Computed example of a mutant assay.
Amino acid sequence: MSDSNSKSGEAHVGEKVGVGKVVDVTSPPHPATPPVVEFDHVTKTYNDGQPNAFTAIKDISFVVEDKHNHGEFVGILGPSGCGKSTILKLIAGLEPQHPATLGTVSVLGKPVTGPGADRGMVFQDYTSFDNRTVLDNVTFGLECRGMPRRIREELGRHWIDQVGLDVENDQYKFPHELSGGMRQRVAIARTLILKPRVILMDEPFGALDPQTRLNMQDLLVSLWRKVEATVFFITHSIEEAVYLGDRVYVLSSSPGRLVQELEVEPPDRPAADMQREPEFRETVYYVNDLIAAEEALKQAGAE
């Protein structure tokens, strides 16, 4: 745990802060059934043993339990360069982040050995294939699995509708004909149609305008409750993480360590309403102060 845990003003384990409550990060749970995702003392050093070696995350441990009929939503926050994307890509099994230098990353009780169909990713950059229609983009993964066209297109139209696009008007459009928000809806549909147990989202709404971003947050909550997947969500927006998350992990400055975990009340009303409420703002201000303190420590250490 980072020395920043002793900072004045930081809440103690079990203490309520607005819509959140501080959890003991030093004692992850030990569930009877295999957790959905587990980090066991994970460190990632790029170019290990070389003069340009760089440690992105250090000694991170957490457990996300496999709760029956309920996938958790985990928001990950921290200063720039603290290793948030490294964590996500270690779960995904993507090189060069995978494998961990030290420790073990497990998904559904098994060590991660590479990418798998049980995990899906949505990035900030719009990753649609420019030469494929919306329908063909959404059904691409099913096509790779060999599913017959008629069946996959029927499923594709269902998910186009689920993410709030107009099936009749949008299914045959190409990515260049869509707004940024519409392209992200396509990316989400392409991920959800494959029914992954774990969904990894790296700043998916970062490039959207504020109102579209709020709308996408509400959409994501609705879809997540239907698919019951576990979602790991990286964002620089504290409001977004607190609104969406069942729990929020706050990382220290590089090398990233897990310095605080908050259990957060689940969203039960629109983002635009909940994010104005005093208790919600209290949690946001608290997390903002944690991150600002981490950035100040890093700056002081560099001077």
Rank of each mutant, 00 (worst) to 15 (best):
F54A: 12
R152A: 09
E203F: 08
G93P: 02
P267V: 00
S2A: 11
K44H: 10
R257S: 07
P51W: 10
N69Q: 14
M216R: 09
V227R: 02
V198H: 05
Q124C: 10
E294N: 08
R197W: 02
Q184I: 07
L244Y: 05
V163M: 08
Q275G: 04
K7W: 10
G120I: 01
D170H: 15
E303T: 14
I57L: 04
L208I: 09
P266I: 07
E10F: 13
V112G: 06
G206F: 06
K110H: 15
L219W: 10
D130M: 15
D166K: 00
L194T: 09
P96H: 09
L135D: 05
L297C: 02
T33D: 13
V264A: 05
P255H: 09
D161I: 00
F174M: 15
N69F: 13
E10Y: 13
A187M: 13
P99V: 02
K7I: 13
G18M: 08
V284Q: 00
L290R: 15
M216G: 12
G181M: 03
E263G: 05
P175T: 08
P96A: 04
R132K: 15
L220T: 02
R247G: 05
L108S: 02
D246M: 14
G78L: 10
E168C: 04
Q162M: 14
V264F: 01
H98G: 05
L297I: 14
R152K: 14
A271P: 05
S106V: 11
L155A: 14
K110G: 03
V186N: 02
Q260F: 01
G120Q: 00
C82T: 07
K67C: 08
A100D: 03
G71R: 07
G181S: 00
C144M: 15
A100C: 02
R145N: 09
L194E: 03
Q275T: 14
L94D: 05
H12A: 14
N5H: 14
P51V: 12
G116R: 11
E177W: 07
Q299S: 12
P196I: 11
M1K: 11
V122H: 04
P99Y: 03
K67V: 15
V284A: 01
F205C: 01
P148F: 11
Q184V: 07
P204Q: 12
A92R: 06
P196F: 08
D59R: 07
F205Q: 02
L135K: 10
R183L: 08
P31A: 06
Q260H: 08
R149E: 15
R225D: 13
A32H: 14
R213I: 04
N131P: 02
Q184M: 01
T127P: 02
T33V: 12
S106R: 15
G180D: 12
V134N: 01
F140T: 07
E168Y: 06
